[in-house]
């Protein structure tokens, strides 16, 4: 049943699949985590992945370069973040409601616009994408080399992003401010931290990161745009944030866990046709529930998450 864990070629295959499936989750989870650390719920991750995917396709199609795709994707992500920030921070609309609205808007907007902008529809495109970059020497290491050091630039980008977010939040003054704003905005305000400015910055940056997850799907995995191609990844990223207890490193591992079980699940089905495939499809969720109740301890969200700040409020 688990022969593929012993056979080096097959193991490398499963692990690279796992990493590829978890990259969009990592981008989205890091983005969402940054927003939530600053005290803003970003339920809209799913929609922002979709915006990113759409932006990447538009940029790559009209400018003929994956780098342009990346920029347009970031632009779309920032715009959706700005929308979330204006409504959820300044106008104090319920952030959950705003998030859902953005998801619905993203679904309709991208599928409508892709019919207008791409002749024959988004899924008949073949865009220029990013190819794998083999890191010299390291990529020749058996198994690990193929999995970790023969990937495309966005994979390395996602891994660096985790380190960067972790560094930002826990090793810099700005990170301290972000966390303070997410915990007790009134105290942070009294200490001279710009609560609104910090939250705006985090939400816009975080949304751009989620959009990179979508850009990754388009520019490296499938090289086309199809309706609803985010396929629930934003929600799994939200789960990864909770599972990772709002810690970048743990959330990153949660993403890898989801990706790994997805990959193993695809693999186990083939070897065991007699077991219903739903059992394997449910595996990642089963593991995450087990992890939530037992292994990881209690989840402590930032204490003012989802509560718009109002200076006059007591």
């Amino acid at each position: 049943m688990f022969e593929f864990l012993i056979n080096p070629a097959q193991l490398a295959d499963v692990l690279s699949t796992a990493l590829r499936l978890s990259i969009p989750l990592i981008f989205a989870a890091m983005g969402g985590l940054l927003c939530e650390r600053a005290g803003v719920f970003n339920i809209a991750l799913e929609g922002q992945i979709l915006f990113g995917a759409f932006g990447a396709a538009v940029g790559a199609y009209y400018f003929g370069s994956p780098y342009a795709g990346l920029l347009v994707a970031i632009g779309f992500g920032m715009l959706s973040g700005l929308l979330l920030a204006i409504l959820g921070i300044s106008l104090r609309v319920n952030q959950i409601v705003v998030g859902i609205a953005i998801i619905l808007f993203a679904t309709g907007f991208t599928s409508f616009m892709s019919r207008l902008l791409f002749p024959g529809g988004g899924n008949s495109l073949t865009l220029d994408g990013f190819g794998p970059i083999n890191i010299p020497i390291l990529s020749d290491i058996p198994i690990v080399g193929k999995v970790l050091f023969a990937q495309n630039g966005l994979v390395y980008g996602a891994l660096l992003l985790v380190l960067a977010i972790n560094f930002l939040l826990f090793r810099t003054r700005a990170g301290m401010s972000i966390r303070a704003v997410g915990e007790t905005p009134s105290a942070a305000d009294a200490a001279g931290i710009h609560v609104f400015r910090t939250r705006y910055a985090c939400v816009i940056t975080g949304s751009a990161m989620a959009a990179l997850g979508g850009a990754y799907l388009v520019l490296t995995q499938v090289l086309l745009f199809s309706d609803k191609m985010s396929a629930g990844k934003g929600f799994i990223a939200l789960a990864a944030i909770v599972l990772g207890r709002w810690q970048p490193k743990l959330a990153f591992m949660a993403c890898l866990l989801f990706g790994f079980f997805d990959a193993v699940q695809l693999r186990l089905q083939f070897n065991n046709p007699e077991i219903p495939f739903q059992v394997f499809a449910a595996l990642p969720y089963l593991v995450s529930i087990l992890a939530l109740v037992g292994l990881m301890g209690r989840a402590n969200p930032p204490s003012s998450i989802g509560r718009p700040y109002d200076r006059e409020m007591r």
Binding site: A9, D13, R20, L21, Q221, A231, R267, Q269, F270, P273
Partner: peptide
């Protein structure tokens, strides 16, 4: 003849990964 399911009708990336896995078998 092997049979596999992706659990999603429209997820292109997952269908692609599932295919790679089939091909390696």
């Amino acid at each position: 003849v092997l049979v596999a399911y992706t659990n999603d009708w429209a997820d292109i990336a997952k269908a692609k990964e599932a295919s790679f896995n089939l091909i390696s078998q």
